[in-house]
Design a protein around this nucleic acid. Structure first.
Lengths: 103, 103
DNA sequence: GCCCTATTTCGATGTCTATCGAAATAATGC
DNA sequence: GCATTATTTCGATAGACATCGAAATAGGGC
């Protein structure tokens, strides 16, 4: 993963509203949550939520699937896994895995 | 860890320049790097670097220690460890540790 | 084809961010 | 206490962001 991509994803998660959205989606699991359900949970204007979702989708952290008139949002686990791996491998190796310390 | 604190730290890392700074500091290990060395590595104005360092320090991800006229910067590993733990435990449990899946 | 619900896009606004150069501060050595 | 080096603070500027309400769009049922 390039540093720019990682930074983009971190920036996407680095907003309390978006982190709450992402957290809610993770907790919802495979069923995901409709945009409207997210709005109820988080309590912001629909347009604002749509904007934040757009940013999360652009970075690949969230996916959407249409079911009739509602849009189901889901956390894209592999993307987060890749991001955490980047942080651990590239940025935190010494602290988290002393025995794997690189040259 | 509260969601606001995690978001603040993610936001701090969610800028390419700051992520490069942090990465350089991690790679420098316990010796750390002087502000001037960081500036040489990254190639931005001293004032800009100072601004970014300030943000990283405010979130606790970086520490500074003065050695004579130079300021040594170091990555604060426990902070990153805590942040990654938050992401894994609160936001990525299902994907990363299926056997520890919470209720 | 029209209505209803769900969601996005538009337009506007205030706040925050990144960046720079210049000037100010800090710490040391002489 | 002055010069030197290292770093921060100041002031300015251009661009990005978060937020809202209103209007537009999408999809489906009648």
């Amino acid at each position: 993963m390039k540093v720019e991509k990682a930074a983009k994803q971190l920036e996407a998660l680095g907003n309390p509203t978006r982190l709450k959205v992402y957290r809610a989606l993770v907790r919802a699991g495979e069923d995901g949550l409709a945009v409207g359900q997210l709005q109820d949970k988080i309590g912001i204007a629909a347009s604002t939520l749509s904007h934040h979702l757009h940013r999360l989708i652009l970075t690949g952290l969230v996916t959407q699937e249409r079911q009739a008139t509602t849009l189901i949002c889901r956390a894209n686990y592999p993307a987060m896994d890749e991001l955490v791996s980047y942080l651990v491998d590239e940025c935190c190796l010494d602290a988290c895995r002393p025995d794997e310390r690189a040259a």
